[in-house]
Design a protein around this nucleic acid. Structure first.
Lengths: 224, 224
DNA sequence: TAAATTTGGTTTACTTTTGGATTATTAAAT
DNA sequence: ATTTAATAATCCAAAAGTAAACCAAATTTA
């Protein structure tokens, strides 16, 4: 086989499109020229183009040219890793109040006992920001687990593995004033009480208040 | 025994693929070259390739090359792939109403125009369940995009790539009565109108109604 | 409008490269 | 010492890339 296989060429072109070298709706160079530029026979190039066409990235029109129809939305990795703390808060605003409602529906006694334990850990760790943050994260993870919804559990775990989160938590807790920590503790308790008394809407509201506090604390930290 | 066993080589290659060094559809270097690169005899390499082929990661074509057919998804855990339709609905119940609120805050005119276009597609595709489902998914994706929150966009895209979703959608639309489809169309319009008039809570409520309809339709389909 | 040019699409004959398979040899591990 | 498994060197047939010519459709030009 020659130097480059059509799969190699396809990979090369896929990259060019991803990287924006060829933009959407743009016409690629004529096949003869492009083949020469890539150092490959026109035949091989055509196989590669056909492959990308199958993948929905290109559209060829005989006599006219080959056009980029879509750009591989590889939004996945970078977008998430680069999520800002504010985006994160908004995502939690979306997820966690409803998680509270579902927790009321599906939560069991052992879930609430575990949450109680994490509350106590937080209260005991008021002066150790790392321990406090760990217990905080554990509380929210356990809360998600109590919904018995594997998809939600996974979504929350994904959010919690975001790289920037650690930095942010560290940053946040450096500037966390005593007052805020006590507010957090009180809010966690309120959420837990609402769950225990099986009041979904009250739990959701308390969670929103909690997240609002987190957002304000974050914004104040961002200013400093 | 020699320096590297074929199992070692298999592990090494598996990791390369996981880490994205070899991406999907890509061709691995020719066995002779790859063997040399790995410091191993071609025989050993072939055993390793055979192993990975059995695992479904590679596909070798004699005379052509060895190709990556699948990439071990992140942690794409069975938990998510095996999510039930009801879990999926609950997750959307969590995410989408708040996405509506954020869309009111950050959505632009072009977003709403795109949503309008998808509404029209759905109305035009009332008798083609596949087209209808595609437009439906596109609507919800675009809605997420309008929040300008990369994390939420990613979460929604994750939900939409769930394998079982396709099957479910197909199943669901087989049993979708005319009446339900018209209800969907009306609800999408109501959501869009609320977004356009910048009423976050009304948009969220309409979305909840929509999801409630979806849940009921699903449960009825599950009975049958 | 009509002709010339440019584009992708197809076919052909030819050459190179590829994985597959077999053999004997060599280095470890038990 | 015996067994096991990697190594190394071949040969093979099939797959695929090369190159050149020609076709048909779209576009441009006269």
């Amino acid at each position: 086989m020659g130097r480059k296989s059509f799969a190699d060429v396809a990979t090369e072109l896929r990259r060019s499109i991803d990287e924006g070298e060829f933009q959407r709706f743009e016409r690629l160079p004529p096949s003869r020229l492009l083949a020469e530029q890539l150092g490959v026979a026109r035949n091989t190039l055509r196989d590669a183009l056909y492959q990308l066409e199958k993948e929905g990235l290109l559209e060829t029109r005989a006599g006219s040219g080959t056009y980029v129809t879509a750009v591989k939305q590889d939004v996945v990795p970078s977008a998430v890793e680069e999520a800002t703390p504010l985006e994160l808060i908004d995502a939690r605003f979306a997820l966690e109040p409803h998680i509270c409602r579902l927790s009321v529906l599906h939560g069991r006694r052992e879930d609430f006992e575990a949450l109680e334990a994490f509350c106590k850990q937080m209260e005991a760790a008021q002066n150790d920001s790392i321990l406090f943050a760990e217990a905080d994260t554990a509380f929210h993870r356990r809360l998600a687990a109590s919904t018995r919804n594997n998809l939600l559990i996974w979504l929350i775990s994904q959010i919690n593995t975001i790289r920037s989160l650690d930095e942010w938590t560290r940053m946040r807790h450096l500037t966390l004033e005593e007052q805020i920590i006590q507010q957090y503790n009180a809010q966690h308790r309120e959420i837990l009480n609402a769950l225990r008394s099986r009041e979904p809407e009250r739990a959701a509201v308390k969670m929103k208040e909690h997240l609002e506090t987190a957002r304000m604390s974050l914004m104040r930290a961002a200013e400093a």
